[in-house]
Design a binder for these strands. Sequence first.
DNA 1: AGAGATTGTAAGGATAGTTCACTAACAAAT
DNA 2: ATTTGTTAGTGAACTATCCTTACAATCTCT
Lengths: 357, 357
Amino acid sequence: MVLQRLFHDGPTSRADLARATGLTRVTVSDLVTALLAEGLVAELGPSQTGRVGKPATLVGLRTREHQVLAVDLTDDLALHGAVLDLEGEIVARRSAPSAGRTGDAAVDAVADLCRELVDAATRPVLGVGVASPGVVDEQGVVLQAPNRGWVDLPLAALLNAQLDLPVHVANDADAACLGELTYGGADGAGVLVLTVGQGVGAGIVVDGALVRGTGHAAGEIGHVTALDERDETDDAPLGRPQRCACGRTGCLETVLAVPALRRRVAEGDADALAAVGRRLGIVLAPVVSALNLAEVVLSGPPELLDGPLRLAARATLRSRTMPVISDALQLRMTALGEDGALRGAAVLVLSGQLGVT
Amino acid sequence: MVLQRLFHDGPTSRADLARATGLTRVTVSDLVTALLAEGLVAELGPSQTGRVGKPATLVGLRTREHQVLAVDLTDDLALHGAVLDLEGEIVARRSAPSAGRTGDAAVDAVADLCRELVDAATRPVLGVGVASPGVVDEQGVVLQAPNRGWVDLPLAALLNAQLDLPVHVANDADAACLGELTYGGADGAGVLVLTVGQGVGAGIVVDGALVRGTGHAAGEIGHVTALDERDETDDAPLGRPQRCACGRTGCLETVLAVPALRRRVAEGDADALAAVGRRLGIVLAPVVSALNLAEVVLSGPPELLDGPLRLAARATLRSRTMPVISDALQLRMTALGEDGALRGAAVLVLSGQLGVT
DNA sequence: AGAGATTGTAAGGATAGTTCACTAACAAAT
DNA sequence: ATTTGTTAGTGAACTATCCTTACAATCTCT
């Protein structure tokens, strides 16, 4: 709790920490003493507020003195990694080609990249966070990741054994959602982060906690039907529903994934982006209503998403939900650009090692 | 934890409790001793399993020796209350007319009904649970309940002051969901209970916890648009989208609420129920996918819901979600009949007073 | 009959919080 | 210059909630 406050509120006095956490000043003093000994926090001198009473000594998290490794496996062609400090600032980047490497070879490629990152780190490393596509459970076991050929692979345990560092693994959309929560200023009461890339995924946080679902497959919203046969006459710009890689027809992914969007833009189809936005709004309206979300955040190429598509989606969401719901809702682009999953992977470590979210 | 195990698994030995909770036998012994002194549990003699070692003495929750009061405010015309034992069995029922009583008068009516229930109880009463329509926060403050004219009314605190008993208040659909979870055998990993009556509401439990949402308005799914203008040609049986009480048009409630369903049945519209089911499936598909739900439970008149409507909804859900999602999903009627909210209100007390869920 | 397993309890200890009482350091009023 | 009231931080003693260790009681199996 103390680290959590220090992380979010910046330097704080022990007395203020006590008020914020509900613990007593005594307990907070003890905890801070322990954290000082660990080197995680430092005293920063007296606060300058000219109030009555003894001036407080500020205590601050040493965010620049510790680092975290993050790896993003979303891209099929390359592994992307970075070293970040606890502020979420990227200190160094490393990449490695990964085309064709699957199974155990892919695990080794990730481990190699991590070793490069360890060398690139300039401060003590708290741990490693990995954002992977596919279905990942709480223990960091990748239950399914078709593009890497992983099934029931204990990725966190394997990397931990190779690197001798704490390793945390999560789904890439879930990581992006955590990143948005911690570094993008999203509202923990209810956020859905929609990642639009080769595929479409979503990470959802409700009441402060990530939604996992029965089979750890929550957020798999890319394969909901978004386009019916009957729509071909109605939403003309979108044409006939397309066959999806999943074998079904008219999935959200067939109109919203980046390749589909690029094709339409290349074909000069001006209204298509707005039409996709309307479809997205129709799909999201029930989710937003059911969960009373505060925010829906879009993550992906802004030239495709942040325009007619987003505006149409927002208008559709407003018109298809009741005011109590839509008034509480914001639909915006991610504040983290392309690094959402990477920053989220770093948050996995902060959360796992320091209890900071 | 000990009460939780005893509640769900029935009589258990101290040693088995220790294994189930992860506590030591010593700690469990101490806790059981305290619970025995409180009268909440009782020793039931030695277990009859002929294994090696000293025979275990079974300890059981005294579920018939304690009672709980539950009040359901869903019905506009009458207040319905009951006394239940901890098994969820209804021991006595009481009702009171409430037509026209709003504001403070409505609160007094509820308190009067509770006093009747106190008199009807034959065992010590642990507390009072209230299921109310409208938006209710965690503290039992009714933020909005249009039909009673309540705004920011601290119902739990008011009743507690009048009755001198612990009082817990929750939204009626949320209560129905908790009831289904505890007494209906629903899967805590992900359930949505859809209550169909004068209006349409939903209670959602994900990863074991009730979803509340930003403005405590989660589950307000009755006013999502389910019928567009363009649908008038497509889903002919439903006709043109109707104006809704909320001021918008084509809300799910305009086709799925009980009055709308009865009208269609009375008009002899054979295909209408299936058409409504299809609309429901379309609305639920994104929610089910996003949350990877294990169950969707329908609560309401079975003669309307448990037939073509449910089957069509199930088929539509299957066809519009990917197999990973739909294979994990079950769509069924409630196991609790009309008493879902009432049993759920009782669960509020068990949860609040004993920590049992 | 003895060995081994299992249940439940007694005694004592570790941990993480609390309350109470104190000193230190300041602002504002006298 | 002094007093008063407020706030910050710490030491000591206490409490709740776990734990470990040790042991008696009672069973099955050989």
